[in-house]
Design a protein around this nucleic acid. Structure first.
Lengths: 334, 334
DNA sequence: TAAGGTCAATTAAGCGCTTAACCTTGTTAA
DNA sequence: TTAACAAGGTTAAGCGCTTAATTGACCTTA
């Protein structure tokens, strides 16, 4: 049942080298021989072992993708884009959810290396400096996606700072003055940038945001978003608008507001980030800043494969532009 | 930079066999030697090649998961559960989205075999009979998840028929008489069963459902759900309740109803299936039939690994119970 | 007619590991 | 004192493939 190249060779009455050459379309074999061999392979339902061929110094045609959580719609969309493009170019994909946990990330990273992936796409923070260093020195090229890495690696990202600004401008146009911000964990660079961009634009307009108005949420995004938003909205001088660093946090904020009996957007405007599938489903549909996930996934794979085929490392940054998507969760302040 | 077992052996002044034994915790080596070897491995940052060890007749410690679409929240949740359990038991996971396309499924299946995965979890329909047959004859054991396969394979599933009944009972209790049903593609067995279960319960109550009230939707679930629901609601004698075979279709139905100015649940009740993260985010939150995704993913992996470790094929069916989750999209008919 | 070229296929080494079989040395029991 | 054995290692074959080097048959050309 387990066919090897020897079985095919014997059946076809040729050497294994001939079979190998047919499989890889290399070397010189007459068209007739080729046909014969192909037929034998089909008849025996022979599936060449990528394992063995990888061992012979070639590639595994496998990539690795690290994300915080594949069940988070944003990363699921990224993963789908990465999967499609990888597959399109002939590669399979290991997908790994790290939960932003250092140990999980390291374990996965090491596993990927042991399995000799040809390249890796990292969409999760990696805390440990020495892990990073050895990662970059490893044999597999690396592309960072949707995150700023503290290392010289190819990076595909949006201009998060600008994205934060977009949200701020939108709220400023609507005359909001008191805002609250919900950020992810400090480690998440994209979140930091979004906040920076927002605050800077806000300051430009001559307005201030008290430090207590910027809330850091934990890993339970919806849950924590809800409780942090709740605190802000129940506090003294509550904000009339909330900027949330991702859609999940915004959903938490929506819940908090509703629970307090506030109407959205009449009483409080809420703006998210990522434009995941969720954003158009919420009540009301969420105004949010969109990332071109499809394009990002594709570009990441293209860059990675270009690197591993050319053999040259490349640490350019590809910066895409975010876009404001206005739905019904924001309105002019009354 | 690329360390092999030879490098380690040379550095440690032992044979490669000794190193191999340390790596695998087998054979006999004194504690002292072991320690020395371990230290050398760490110093050299040696990562054993799973590729080479797989070739020596052992396993790849890799599983494959086929789903229709990883960016569909239901499958993303399944995938996350499968990933966690696989990882927990020491396996990596290839994730493949087939879009329910025959060619994609076959291509992926063949790829998985060439990459010598130790086992596969199939969550997508596979049309071709001969593909199925050769799949089952292959070296890798197979577990089917969330779907009925037309083959003797281990299956982890919920009682879809019963789930459909649950939805029907709920609507019957609310005095609905005119209903519309939204189903996925005919090929999707779970969908068929849900419809069967619903219809049967409905008939038991002495009520009938016209064939034109059961609509088959295409692959663009939200989109198609919306248009089919729209047709039903705009038609003569419109239904006062809609049963949708998954949450995505239900979301389409919600959109259609809103667009027609209908209030939910006052004018029309809508009930979904799967209880994905989406269900609690819609407006109003969706009444739906829940599947225990986490548990299903875990059980699938456990069964698979048990099979491949024991070497015995096993085609039991594990049938879990669905559960009705009542939210605010359904109400007594007025 | 011999030297050189082509074409088509084969030979054989080697990729990095595992493992059964074997070898040494030291210990034990009769 | 010696046969028997355990403990701790080593040797070497082989997993299924790729590929550079080689071979042999046949054809040119001067």
């Amino acid at each position: 049942m387990k066919m090897t190249i020897y079985d095919v060779a014997r059946e076809a009455g040729v050497s294994i080298a001939a079979v190998s050459q047919v499989i890889n379309g290399k070397g010189k074999i007459s068209e007739q021989r080729r046909q014969e061999i192909v037929q034998v392979m089909e008849r025996l339902n022979y599936q060449p072992s990528v394992i063995a061929s990888a061992l012979t110094g070639k590639k595994t045609f496998t990539l690795g993708l690290l994300v915080p959580d594949i069940s988070n719609p944003f990363f699921a969309e990224i993963a789908r884009a990465v999967e499609d493009q990888s597959h399109h170019l002939g590669y399979s994909l290991f997908i790994c959810s790290t939960d932003n946990k250092k140990e999980r990330a390291e374990r996965y990273l090491s596993l990927m290396q042991q399995k000799r992936v040809d390249g890796m796409i990292i969409g999760t923070g990696i805390a440990n400096k020495s892990t990073l260093a050895s990662l970059m020195k490893g044999r597999a090229p690396v592309v960072v996606i949707a995150r700023e890495a503290k290392l010289a690696a190819k990076t595909v990202i949006i201009d998060d700072y600008c994205g934060g600004g977009l949200a701020a401008s939108h709220l400023l146009e609507q005359n909001h003055v008191q805002v609250g911000l919900l950020s992810e964990n400090e480690e998440v660079s994209s979140s930091r940038e979004r906040i920076r961009g927002f605050v800077s634009k806000w300051n430009e307009a001559g307005l201030n945001i008290g430090a207590d108005r910027i809330r850091i949420c934990g890993d339970e995004l919806v849950q924590d978003g809800k409780s942090q938003a709740g605190e802000l909205l129940r506090g003294p001088n509550p904000p009339t608008a909330l900027f949330c660093c991702n859609d999940l946090l915004a959903i938490g904020a929506l819940k908090a507001a509703k629970e307090l009996g506030l109407r959205i957007p009449e009483d409080v405007s809420i703006i998210g980030f990522d434009n995941t599938i969720l954003a158009e489903l919420t009540d009301p549909p969420l105004t949010t800043v969109a990332q071109p996930t499809k394009q990002m996934g594709q570009l990441a794979v293209d860059s990675l494969i270009e690197m591993l085929e050319s053999g040259e490392k490349n640490d350019e940054r590809i910066v895409l532009q975010p876009e404001l998507v206005i739905r019904q969760s924001t309105a002019i302040k009354r």
